[in-house]
Structures are given as C-alpha cells and as structure tokens.
Amino acid sequence: MEGGDEQVMSEVHLGCPPHSSAPHISVFTFTAPPTAFQPNVAWDGDHHATCESSALNQCDVGDHVCVEDASRQLNFDKDGDLVLSRRRRNHNKRCLNYRVTIQHNITSSLPLVGLQVWKAALVLVDFVLHKSFMSSDFVDMIAVELGAGTGLLGILLARVLRAIFVTDTGTEVLDNCAINVQINAGALKYCESSVLVRELDWKESWPPKIGASDVEAQQRNSSKYSWSASEVDEAEGASLLFAADVIYSDELTDAFFNIVEKLMSHGSEKVLYLALEKRYNFTLDDLDIVANGYQHFQSYLKDEQEYARLNGTFQPCFVGERINIDQIPQYIKEYERGKDLEIWKICYRKTPHSKSVL
C-alpha cells in the first residue's frame, strides 16, 4: 500500500482526543441476554468467575448487576430488620455484564490501520457474540482471524474457542494486539495461551515460514510472532476463519483471497465470516460515486444458484451468502451501524455440490 504518510481515522474514535499521540484506551461494553448460553462459568458484573449453581440469583444494586448466593447468611440492619435485595421481576434469569479494554491509536497511516478499531470489526463482534450466546456452535473449535488489528474480535472469541490464531503483519500492530490479549485475559477469564498472535503476510505463500525455536524466539524480538510447524498444522485444521474491514484496496483484496484460498485448500473444511463496510468514491471513469472496492470483492464470489449451474464445467470457487444483520442484536453500543455494513458467510467449494456444515 502506498501513501504511508496519509493519516486516517476510524469513525469509532470520533469522540477521542484528536491530537493525542500516545496509545488511547477504550472500553467496549456489552450485556449477555438472560437466555445466553454460558459454557462452564457464570460471570458477575465485575467479571469474577463463579460456579454454575441453582442457588445463584441476580439482583440489582444501583446501576450494577451482581450475582447473589441465595444460600448466604441473611443480613439484618441495626434495628434487627431483615435487609432484602431488590430483585428483577424474573430473578431466575441473569443478565451478565462484560467489558473489554482495547489499546489503540486514534489516527494512523494507511499501512498501520490495524492500530485502530473499525466499525466492521464491531458488527462482526455483535455477530459472534450472538452466535456464542444463542448456541454452542463455536465452543471448543479452532479459528484463524485474518487482519486482526487490535485483536478485539479474537479476544471475545477466546471465551468459547479452544484456540484462535490472531494474525496480522508488522511488529507495531502485532505488539499492540499482544498487549490487548494480555490485559483482557484476567477480566474475561480466557486462557492467554489459547490466543496465539502470529504474523501472516497475505502477499507471501502459505504455509508461512517456520520460525526459530522457543529459546531463540525469546532472544530475538523479530521471531516472537513466528509460526511453529505444529501451529501451522493446527491452523490448517481450523474450522473457522474471521476477517473484518479488510476490503478497501483491490490489491489487498486480491492478496486476501489468495491467502484464504490457500488456507481453505489445506486441512479441514472451513467457513469464513467476513465483515466489511462499503466505501464510496467519485471516479472520473464512472462520473459517479461508486463502491468499486466492494464490486471487486463481489467478483470473487458466486451465489448458490451460480454454483449449481456449474455442473460439468466445475472449477473450485468461493460461494458467498450475505447474512441479514438486521436479525443480529447490537450488543456493542459504542458505534452506529449505518446501512453500509455487511457480513458474509463464505465457503470454498473444491468439489461439485459440496455443502458446508457450519
């Protein structure tokens, strides 16, 4: 990408101090619905893990939500009167509050846009939160995130996945991502070692070059985001790929689909969930405001009807299905969706009329 000195700013950061040069800290909040699927643990409003128990009931304390143990000793005031907590109307259901802390830049050059949080990442976060709240589909699976940037999506997925490879390129972006993984591990109670920050340059071939040994990697800063042979095997065995806001340059889109094709051609069958924001520009060729980058993206995809018509002329291809985001609640409140955000489910069909199970 050219134009490395040009500064850009995500709409997500419009409320941040515009001239701050130091990394900025933003806190994104969301609430799990009372019917949310919760693997293994329940969480109170301060993110302390507690064992699942029928004795746990939710109560309101001011604006906060806490978990109360019904078997706890009763409390009395100084006059000997029983102190009762004000309960929700349906106290058998729990709304669980979460916070995730993200270090990011407020502006960046084009090659370092991964230092910011973008709206497409937030709508994809809403999607994976809804999927994880309403089902066990992602539980104990392995995933690879492409162009992870600040690591926000991978951090939230780590709550339910067995492992996730959070990938991007450039030491500055990867260092910032690794910091975010570290500072949220205690609060969100995921195993930090299950989130692997790794460098993946889409313009290079897959599999990536195998790095130095663990001891050597600790001695050389440049090697700490390298892959091991076992990690490459594990990534090829992943069932899920994720990417957000990686469609804004035709050259980058070409490189993206090149690496996705290689990933999907190796190992297990995979599904890609991709979120994007259509960006419009006035062009002299069209004499109109058009989303050329979006059109280039769509040129890579076939729908199910086109795929069915291939018959004997079959060649491997990407089959895409647009997900209706109107049916996905907005859990993250710190952004406005607008009409130009989309999520796509994309499969790579290597054989005629094969179907994805996810």
Results as ranks from 00 to 15, higher is better:
4 G>Q: 10
5 D>S: 14
6 E>V: 11
8 V>Y: 09
9 M>L: 06
9 M>V: 08
9 M>R: 09
10 S>G: 14
10 S>W: 05
11 E>K: 03
11 E>C: 02
12 V>F: 05
12 V>R: 02
12 V>P: 12
13 H>N: 04
13 H>M: 06
14 L>T: 10
15 G>S: 07
15 G>D: 15
16 C>P: 04
17 P>T: 07
17 P>G: 07
17 P>E: 11
18 P>E: 06
18 P>H: 10
18 P>A: 05
19 H>K: 01
20 S>D: 12
20 S>T: 15
20 S>N: 07
21 S>L: 14
21 S>N: 13
22 A>L: 14
22 A>I: 10
22 A>D: 15
23 P>R: 10
23 P>D: 14
24 H>A: 03
25 I>H: 13
25 I>Q: 15
28 F>D: 04
30 F>Y: 14
30 F>R: 03
33 P>M: 00
33 P>G: 03
33 P>W: 02
34 P>M: 10
34 P>I: 03
34 P>C: 09
37 F>C: 11
39 P>R: 08
39 P>H: 11
40 N>Y: 12
42 A>P: 04
42 A>Q: 15
44 D>E: 12
44 D>W: 06
45 G>K: 00
46 D>I: 12
47 H>M: 07
50 T>S: 05
50 T>Q: 11
52 E>F: 10
52 E>G: 05
53 S>V: 01
54 S>A: 08
54 S>D: 15
55 A>G: 00
55 A>D: 08
56 L>G: 00
56 L>H: 15
57 N>M: 10
58 Q>N: 06
60 D>R: 02
62 G>A: 08
62 G>H: 11
63 D>G: 11
63 D>W: 12
63 D>K: 15
64 H>E: 13
64 H>V: 06
64 H>T: 08
64 H>Q: 10
65 V>Q: 12
65 V>G: 09
66 C>L: 15
67 V>N: 13
67 V>C: 10
69 D>R: 08
69 D>Q: 04
69 D>K: 03
70 A>L: 14
70 A>N: 12
70 A>I: 03
71 S>F: 03
72 R>K: 13
72 R>Y: 00
73 Q>V: 03
74 L>A: 12
74 L>N: 11
75 N>A: 02
75 N>R: 01
76 F>S: 04
77 D>N: 15
77 D>Y: 10
77 D>R: 01
79 D>V: 00
80 G>P: 14
80 G>W: 12
80 G>I: 04
80 G>Y: 14
80 G>A: 11
80 G>V: 11
80 G>H: 11
81 D>C: 07
82 L>P: 05
